Simulated scan of single mutants.
Amino acid sequence: MPEAIDYLNDELLLTPDEKPKAAQTPLLLRAIEVIERINAFIDETGAEPVSEPGRSVRERMLANELAGLRASKADLDGLASYDTRNLLFGGGGGADPLDDPLLSDGLDIFAVRDELKPMARPDFVADRRPCPDFERFEPLFQDIRNAVEEGTRKPQPFRQERVELGEFFVLKGQLVHVADLRDEHRRNGKLDARLRVIFDNGTESNLLMSSLVRRLYEDKDARRIGVTDSGPLFMGARTGFVYVLRSLSDKPEVQGLLKVGTTAGAVEDRVAHAETQSAFLFAPVVIVETYELVGHSAKETEQRIHQALRPYHIALRVTGPDGRSFSSVEWFKATPEIVEKAIRLVLAQG
């Protein structure tokens, strides 16, 4: 059978004023979805979204996405027909050359004014790089945006001493996701760790937990994306998991021990890189059991379970690949039955 010809896109049959239709790549489809949300915002408010202190989280997120589209418009030719407000391609959003501060007064063109001096960049920006598997995280960011708009998740002021695996935050108008946590250690007497942080513009960073916490506190508009009703019992929302693990380490002092802890994200994600983390003794682990937390604070539940298992607690120290020594907690010399009984007792007490 002869090959079918697409007459609509055959370049030989197009008039000089026509161009072949651009294929809608995943990147273009996402850009279309973003600009449609921005257009909807302008329909509601009558103005472009702006990212500045005092603006809503939704507006700052949209303003950040608009800036990303403007920076990438050279690779988004197919987006022009959706740019109905000329935000990207029709000169919209651009500065008037006559308003250039170098041309608006009598200063020497080589004189550097205070407001034009280079600004110091945050240290966590310096080591950002493209996220090679961003397609895994993109649906998560979209789910968070939808949940914020629907009111099922509520941006809350940041008041934490640490962050947990799987959490989402708004920082400087950008959505931030803690995708991995490893190499837990003590830094200046406080627990710290190396993170894999994914930003909603397709970049990532491996900053320290202490650095992320500091930046979240420095940004007065930073928010944690929590559930809507975040009272003492979280109104029936799933708040994480309790996990029971067994180490696959061949060290004799580890045999017969179980690790008990909690996580806000999936247990499989929490232990995916166990061999790189002091908390897991730099060795793989096997999941013995997991318990879903509904209506319980994960951290409070963990503390109560550890208190119930205190008679079985074992203090361990482990030496990392770099020769540094770490203390590792949450390990207990107890049977799975004893651990299960303690967990169920704590969960039943509410």
Rank of each mutant, 00 (worst) to 15 (best):
G189D: 15
L233R: 09
A71P: 12
E289F: 07
R196N: 06
E302F: 01
K73V: 13
L257F: 06
I5Q: 09
D229S: 13
I314P: 07
A308L: 15
T203N: 12
P336T: 02
S278E: 09
L87D: 06
M61G: 06
L76S: 04
R317Q: 14
V318P: 02
V285R: 00
V170C: 11
A272H: 07
V260N: 12
F169V: 03
L233M: 02
D250T: 05
D183S: 05
S56Y: 14
L248H: 08
N201P: 04
Y217V: 14
A279P: 03
P2D: 05
R58K: 14
S56Q: 12
A4N: 14
P157F: 09
T15E: 10
R37S: 02
S247E: 03
D99E: 08
A120P: 15
V285A: 01
P49W: 01
A31I: 03
P20G: 02
L281E: 10
H177R: 13
T239E: 11
L69E: 00
S211K: 02
S81G: 07
E135A: 06
V318T: 04
P53Y: 01
Q303K: 04
I198K: 00
V288M: 02
Q160G: 09
S56D: 14
L181N: 00
E33V: 12
N39R: 05
L66I: 03
K299V: 13
R129G: 01
Q277A: 08
F137R: 02
S328W: 07
V34H: 13
I35P: 03
L66V: 08
R159W: 11
K73D: 07
K21E: 15
R85L: 08
A67V: 05
P53N: 06
V346Y: 01
P97K: 13
F234H: 00
E300H: 03
I144D: 05
T152S: 14
L181G: 01
P20H: 11
K73W: 08
F41P: 08
G90W: 10
E65S: 05
R224H: 09
L13H: 06
D269K: 10
S230I: 14
R304E: 06
G94D: 13
S210A: 05
P252L: 08
L8G: 04
P232Q: 03
P118C: 00
P311V: 06
T45G: 11
S72F: 11
R145T: 04
T239F: 14
D143V: 07
E161G: 15
E138N: 05
S56E: 13
P2M: 06
N188D: 15
A315I: 13
R246C: 03
L87G: 00
V271A: 02
K299R: 09
Q307R: 13
G256R: 15
G323E: 04
Y82V: 08
K220G: 07
F326A: 09
P130C: 03
I305R: 07
A342Y: 01
R223G: 01
R304G: 00
T335C: 07
A279M: 03
S51E: 08
Q303T: 13
L102D: 10
S278V: 15
F332R: 01
D229G: 13
I287N: 05
F199I: 03
M119R: 05
P232T: 11
F169M: 15
D17M: 11
F282I: 11
L140K: 04
D96Q: 04
E337L: 09
F158G: 10
A222E: 04
D99T: 04
V170K: 03
A23Y: 12
K190G: 13
V57F: 10
K190F: 10
S72I: 08
G236C: 07
P311N: 11
D43F: 11
